[in-house]
Computed example of a mutant assay.
Amino acid sequence: MTVPQKLEGLELIDCAKASANQGLATAARQCGYGENTEAFEAELIKACQKIGIEIDSLGDLITDRQQIKKGAGIEIAPDSSSSL
């Protein structure tokens, strides 16, 4: 879902946090900044500073729980198609 207008403040932080695992370009688009990742990241840092959170980049919003989900699970499969 792409937002037609640029998000700001808490809405921007919420959208960015939800999109952080998908990368900077995707998060910028979903928060209404299109391909302008520099403006997105600058506005995100400014919005976080307003509420007392210090971040250096979008990646700082990814929680440990989100990182665990990304790599969670194991693959169980036969060694070959003939040993099903």
Rank of each mutant, 00 (worst) to 15 (best):
S83N: 09
I53D: 10
L24T: 03
M1K: 06
L24I: 11
E43D: 11
Q30S: 15
D14Q: 14
L61S: 04
E41F: 02
D79E: 13
N36M: 03
T37V: 01
A16D: 11
E75H: 04
L12S: 00
K70Y: 13
D14I: 12
K69G: 15
D79S: 13
I76L: 07
E41Q: 08
G9M: 08
P4V: 12
A25E: 03
L84G: 05
I53G: 10
I68H: 10
L44Y: 01
I55C: 05
D64G: 13
D60G: 05
G23S: 02
K17Y: 13
M1I: 10
Q49Y: 06
C15E: 09
G59Y: 00
E54M: 12
S19G: 07
G71K: 12
L61N: 06
G73Y: 05
D14P: 07
I62D: 09
I13P: 08
D64F: 07
R65D: 15
S57N: 12
L61A: 03
A25N: 03
Q22N: 15
S83P: 03
K46L: 15
K50Q: 09
D56R: 07
G71E: 11
E43T: 05
G9T: 12
L58M: 05
L24N: 06
E54I: 12
A72C: 06
G73V: 08
A39Y: 00
V3H: 08
G32Y: 00
I13E: 04
E54D: 14
L24M: 09
D56L: 08
Q66H: 02
D60P: 06
A42K: 01
I74R: 09
T37F: 00
G73W: 10
E11Q: 15
A39D: 01
Q5G: 10
G23E: 02
A18V: 03
A27L: 07
G52W: 07
S80V: 06
I68E: 14
L84A: 04
C48T: 02
S19I: 02
A28R: 00
